[in-house]
């Protein structure tokens, strides 16, 4: 459904922005290159203009989606929450309907999810009691499943059908990346869906 030219695979497999740029620069001319470069610039630029380097704006927006999922939706604030979610979806180009772009975006979304998941193996992740009790590998995987679900399907199903449709590619990309992460993720994802 989201197949791309095999030449692009190394670029979408790499999560380090600098290495990705090197791969991108070495890539022979092809029809996708301009759009990929545009997405790259968009993803790794400092949208808040605080003069920061090493910004992964899309990763930050993932985290924001998860934070918005956790935020209560008291009816007065529901409109503000929806407005913010829509702004994030636009920044993540989820309103792009071009088939070719969607395929590229799917892989970029998967790359974002992969970068998030790469942080879920660190020693401090999912630790409790002020970092004194470190989580074991299984706990980390469960927590990673929960995070990925919340920043994709969780936030979508808590909102309108329109948002759910907009997020379809995003949800698929995050789901597929999670399924490649560990075998137990499938059951956990389904459990989260049921709850």
């Amino acid at each position: 459904m989201y197949e791309i030219d095999g030449i692009l695979t190394p670029y979408f497999s790499e999560t380090d922005p600098e290495k990705r740029l090197i791969i991108l620069d070495k890539m022979p001319d092809n029809e996708a290159l301009d759009f990929i470069r545009e997405v790259y610039e968009d993803r790794y630029s400092d949208h808040e203009k605080k003069g920061r380097k090493n910004v992964d704006w899309w990763l930050w927006r993932c985290i924001c989606l998860q934070l918005l999922y956790g935020r209560g939706s008291f009816f007065i604030f529901r409109a503000f929450k929806r407005h913010e979610i829509n702004a994030i979806l636009n920044e993540l180009r989820m309103n792009d309907n071009d088939d070719f772009h969607i395929r590229i975006l799917y892989h970029e979304y998967r790359n974002t999810a992969r970068r998030y998941l790469s942080t879920c193996k660190s020693s401090g992740y999912a630790s409790s009691f002020m970092g004194f009790k470190q989580a074991d590998d299984k706990e980390k995987i469960y927590r990673a499943c929960q995070d990925i679900w919340q920043m994709s399907k969780g936030i979508a199903i808590s909102e309108s059908l329109e948002i759910q449709n907009k997020m379809k590619v995003w949800i698929n990309a995050f789901h597929d990346e999670l399924m490649d992460y560990d075998d137990i993720c499938r059951d956990e994802y389904e459990r989260l869906d049921r709850n």
Binding site: R52, N54, D56, W60, I63, L67, Y116, T119, C120, S122
Partner: peptide
């Protein structure tokens, strides 16, 4: 964000 996942926060800028 830092409380949720410190390393991801660092990577996101």
């Amino acid at each position: 964000a830092i409380g949720g996942n410190e390393e991801a926060s660092e990577l996101s800028g």
